[in-house]
Design a protein around this nucleic acid. Structure first.
Lengths: 187, 187, 187, 187
DNA sequence: AACTAATCGAGACGGTACGTCCGGTCTTGCA
DNA sequence: TGCAAGACCGGACGTACCGTCTCGATTAGTT
């Protein structure tokens, strides 16, 4: 009962958070600044999110509903597309700013860590599982391998390139797709 | 001239930082707490490190002088040892707490980012380069591949498993060593 | 036209305000707490009172229609009764909590200040004027003195005892009645 | 040990508080505004005063070391001077703004209430006691009366005039001095 | 019986102040 | 000059409260 939440406020918060993430980065992001830019009160933010981290999570990882990777006809093609999707997502200014900060902060919040995994890792793994199932159906793979391992093999190098080496992931998708496909098919 | 720095102070700072990192994590670490536990003044810290990040960096990534991987006689063996070394380092409580935090904070400090890369990435890549050279000399590889890519392929999955999936990297070294070796030799 | 105000709501607001004043004091009183205790919405309060101060004013000073002091037959007796009435009112838990708070807040609201004076000071002065008139009629006083001054002389010491010295006003009425009567009759 | 408090900071806080009290009143006074005007951090304020009330108390009631009233040679004269001193203090812009607010807020803080009494009431009573002692020595009074009562009789009407009736206390000192002297000497 | 208009409880809203905390700097007196 | 202690500025945090507004549901009086 009572007055319902104003959905324009929800959107204003997320939009302000995203634009400030892109401008100031994760460390420079302030709840007061978000409230000011969104032209709302801080209470409206804390009514929705218990902490700054949850707000950033909602703004940056919200619905990473990356659509199921299209069937390209081959494991190699499917993997390349999936890696490229991860690369595209990770190089978004908002995600690029938010993800390292979130990865750091979730280590002191198991609850948020679980939600991050659900929204980020699990979604990627779902696409991956479908892709691998197709490869098995095609006869390219004898049986579907450990999804956790393959996911680490696919997402890990992207993260290492972008966040550890601090290099551009240009051309990474094809090279990584080829390598992972080769490793899986054992050829 | 004047009074020389007390090396016991250096050690007390690093020890206090490490123990607090393990206890409270990166986000819960405060410079005041380090000073109190080390029974020193804050000025003694800031005389040595310009920022909290540098202090953590010094305490957690200090001299990752992981020794050149021993020659096991095969690319597969060498890679497995290298991956295991990375796994061992990353699963240290101190490193596990510090690395995500540092990866987040260095995004607003190119200077520290460069030092982090030098101390962390470059060291790993040096070991990797030597290892690959040996494989070329043995005839296992026709020519030494792109070190950045191989490094991403080796370190990335470890990071993804530990920091993204939040899983234990037990048994990862053998599996990953085998996969990367296979991908490199094209078999 | 439209739905008429529910008088039970009026009473619930005032009762809740009084009980919370007695429990939490003026500073600890919140409009939300009043609404919750009265089991009404905040809008019902602000439909009646423009500010929290007006609500407290209505609840604590409402109709201090202290009845005209009974004619005891002498100036001394009449004054003693009047002082006792002021003491009784001021030591009410609700009034004791509300009056200092109102006296503080009305300094930034001339409108409420005027209403406070009308309801509180003027009422006391009316009783005082009648009392003094009777004394003149009796021949105890040659002419009626300045009511403001006599009021200050009568109400002031009560306030000083209760709010400045924070002491109990027990026995104050007789002593103060005697002193003021003596000062007025010049004996 | 450690760095000592900077007395210029103390003074800056008090000066800023006083000027803001005079400008904005008690209700409009903000700790942030004090910090900004004093060009100091809020921590420097809260290191000295636990609450806003204590800060205002220190700034407005600080050392009301009203000097012992000069001996005018008569009880009437001495009382008139004392009342005038109270009037002068109470009509100071700073005190006028602070005292009602403090009187309201101390009702929820027995600790501050005691300190207020010590610094404000007790000081006035000390002067009063000396004055009464002189009157006894002169033979104007048979014995020194109850100081609490006389204080209420002296300070109360001033407060009633200024804070209840909201009138100017011009000329109050002589009139009140005469009345209290008459009441005490019983003439 | 429908319509109108103001009420009601509930609770979200913008704004603003609170008191706490932390990072990085500065200032004591002592060694 | 280094050191422990601790005060300093600046600024963000999350909480609380005020007075306003918005919802859906009553509840009269008016057609």
């Amino acid at each position: 009962m009572g007055r319902p939440r104003d959905s324009r406020v929800d959107e204003a918060i997320l939009a302000a958070t995203r634009s400030l993430l892109a401008e100031s980065g994760y460390a420079g992001l302030t709840v007061d600044a978000v409230a000011e830019r969104a032209r709302i009160g801080k209470a409206a933010i804390y009514r929705r999110y218990a902490t700054k981290q949850e707000m950033v999570f909602a703004a940056a990882v919200h619905s990473v509903d990356l659509p199921p990777p299209p069937d390209t006809g081959s494991l190699l093609g499917d993997l390349t597309v999936l890696v490229q999707e991860i690369v595209d997502h990770v190089t978004t200014p908002v995600a690029a700013a938010a993800i390292p900060g979130l990865l750091a902060d979730i280590r002191s919040s198991p609850e948020l860590a679980a939600r991050f995994r659900d929204a980020f890792v699990t979604v990627q793994q779902a696409g991956l599982a479908e892709l691998l199932g197709r490869a098995v159906a095609r006869g390219e793979l004898p049986s579907s391998p450990d999804v956790d391992l393959v996911h680490a093999l696919v997402a890990g190098p992207v993260f290492a390139t972008v966040y550890l080496q601090n290099r551009s992931p240009d051309g990474l998708a094809e090279r990584l797709g080829r390598i992972v496909a080769a490793a899986l098919t054992g050829v």
